[in-house]
Every structure is written in C-alpha cells, then in structure tokens.
C-alpha cells in the first residue's frame, strides 16, 4: 500500500520535472529560419552542382582533357572541343552536366588539373521538368558574363 502511493508520488514528480524543462524551453528564442522569407548563405565549402571557372578574358579554363568525364561515377558529363588552327590548346565547345544523375561527390572537381571546375552555391533547384536539370555549363558561363 505504501509503495503504491510512493509510486504515484514519484511518478507525479517526474512529470513535473519534465514539464519544467518544456516550460523553460518555451521562453527560449526561436532557432528556425522562416525559409521562403529568410534564406541562409551557404558555407564556403558547400558542394552544389559544378560550374566552369573562367580566365581573365572571360573564357573557360577548360582545355577539354576529359579527366572529369572519366572520373565521374555516374557519367553525368558530356563535353566536346575543337582545336583551332595555329592554337596549342583545345577550346571547349560543349559542356553538358546531367544533374539528374549527379550525386555531388566532387570527383570531377578533384580530378581537374587546370582549375576549370568549381562548386556553385546554388540550392534552390526544384522543378517539375526533367530538362531543367540538364545544365549547359558553357551557356551559363556566357549568361554570367552578359
């Protein structure tokens, strides 16, 4: 009989201790971000989809060696280039990233020896159309420079 009431008492105390915790939390400041109205800036090392790096003349650093294409585990990258007459290096003519397959591992950026690829900070990428995720990186570079 005594233990029965002791149990009830200790049980009630434990509930009040729990309530004390939630009561204190109630007055703490909000830690969430109200997303569409506020956004967070991405950290410096954030890994978004890749983007081409340009040189001083606004042309891509890429020399079409194809190492990124070979390093990619999911075959996301298609690229092509031509060698103009009298030039030593190839010039990039096409760089397509199929972002539907990309898993953001960063193998392409790591494999690049010519400082031609970087991660973008973009993360608002929702769309209902598959074609929206096939990025023409060369086109994006030109758009950036406009």
């Amino acid at each position: 009989m005594v233990t029965y009431f002791k149990d009830i008492y200790s049980g009630l105390v434990s509930l009040f201790i729990g309530m004390e915790v939630t009561f204190k939390e109630f007055f703490k400041p909000t830690v969430t971000v109200q997303y569409p109205y506020e956004t967070l800036t991405m950290t410096e090392r954030y890994r978004g989809h890749v983007e081409l790096i340009e040189n001083d003349e606004g042309k891509p650093n890429c020399i079409v060696c194809g190492l990124c294409q070979r390093a990619c585990p999911s075959a996301c990258i298609t690229l092509a280039g031509v060698k103009p007459e009298g030039e030593k290096k190839k010039v990039l003519t096409k760089y397509i990233l199929d972002f539907t397959r990309c898993s953001l591992c960063g193998s392409c950026v790591e494999s690049c020896n010519f400082n031609a690829l970087e991660f973008s900070k973009e993360y608002n990428l929702a769309s209902t159309r598959r074609e929206d995720f096939i990025f023409d990186l060369l086109q994006r570079l030109e758009d950036r420079n406009k």
């Binding site: 049980g11 434990s14 509930l15 729990g18 915790v21 939630t22």
Partner: peptide, 9 residues
C-alpha cells in the same frame, strides 16, 4: 534525462 529518462510513463 530529466524530460524523458526519468518520466514515469
């Protein structure tokens, strides 16, 4: 510990 572990329920 206070909120959950000690809770009688």
């Amino acid at each position: 510990d206070k909120l959950v572990t000690g809770n009688i329920i």
